[in-house]
């Protein structure tokens, strides 16, 4: 008895030692800079000492330019995630229930973007969908009119994001779909459920959590994305990533750049909370089972 307690304690200490390094890294490289950033935006040092001020936040929320940039970021994220899920869920369901050569090809194609660096993708995008790009040349050879190129419009980054985030979403959704047993689907079919009934009553309820996780992941990545909005998006309004860098490096206004970062962080934190909560729920459910 006393031996097993000692062993438990030893194991607990080893566990603590193992998490010490990541926790220390998170504390020094992430938590502390966040605290510093928030303090820098709230405390103004004047001639008569430091004082609390919301001026930088007031500027952000009353400045049409800044708010326009925040709005386009939310719009781009919402549209990208919607399109992404509309594409990724059918692919994941297809890959869950179909086997064979075609399915293998589809899977390879869906995972392929994972291996292409986004900067390469951005330049490929310009060559294919850009003005006088490949699509225009093909259309032109059939005497068809050119496309209105999405390059340098808000749709440019959207197309890039959807392509770039497809593999991650498909993989997360497929993991969720492993919760859907063939037995459950067959049982539903036996009692006469149609395809849509199976989708809405059997499949979707079981992968709801995975959809939430995939959405949170993608939103966190998109909200502060840089490469696609920088290379493919319009000059104005611009997404928060390029906007923050420009405010810091070119406008040389670090306080306003930090204010933008804190606002971006707070919005992302909401989705981070969704993610953490769904993971915790999932674990609680598994432990109960």
């Amino acid at each position: 008895m006393s031996i097993s307690v000692a062993q438990d304690r030893g194991r607990g200490q080893t566990g603590l030692l193992l998490v010490l390094l990541p926790v220390a890294l998170v504390a020094t490289l992430i938590i502390w800079p966040i605290v510093r950033a928030v303090m820098d935006t709230l405390i103004v040092t004047g001639p008569d000492g430091a004082s609390l001020s919301f001026a930088s936040y007031r500027f952000f929320f009353t400045d049409a330019h800044s708010m326009g940039n925040l709005r386009i970021t939310i719009w781009t994220t919402a549209v990208s995630v919607s399109i992404l899920m509309a594409i990724a869920i059918p692919i994941a369901i297809y890959l869950r229930f179909v086997t064979g050569r075609t399915a293998a090809v589809v899977q390879a194609l869906a995972i392929f973007p994972l291996f292409v660096p986004s900067i390469i993708l951005a330049y490929a995008f310009i060559r294919v969908l850009g003005p006088n790009g490949m699509v225009d040349l093909i259309l032109g050879s059939f005497g068809l009119p050119r496309i209105r190129s999405p390059y340098l419009t808000p749709w440019g980054p959207v197309i890039g994001f959807v392509w770039d985030n497809l593999p991650l979403s498909v993989v997360i959704l497929m993991a969720g779909l492993s919760n859907v047993t063939n037995n459950a689907v067959e049982a539903a079919r036996d009692v006469g459920a149609g395809k849509f009934a199976i989708l809405f009553h059997i499949i979707l309820p079981r992968i709801w959590l995975s959809i939430l996780v995939a959405t949170s992941f993608v939103v966190l990545g998109l909200f502060s994305a840089f490469t696609f909005p920088y290379l493919l998006g319009p000059a104005a309004p611009e997404m928060m990533g390029p906007f923050m860098l420009r405010t810091f490096g070119d406008v040389m206004d670090p306080v306003q750049a930090r204010t933008q970062a804190v606002i971006t962080f707070l919005i992302c934190a909401v989705f981070g909370w969704f993610y953490v909560r769904s993971i915790a729920k999932n674990r609680a459910r598994r432990e109960a089972a």
Binding site: P131, S149, Y151, L152, T153, Y230, L231, P234, A235
Partner: peptide, 9 residues
């Protein structure tokens, strides 16, 4: 300008 006011990066 190009596309009625687009600017490259």
């Amino acid at each position: 300008m190009f596309e009625g006011g687009a600017y490259t990066s």
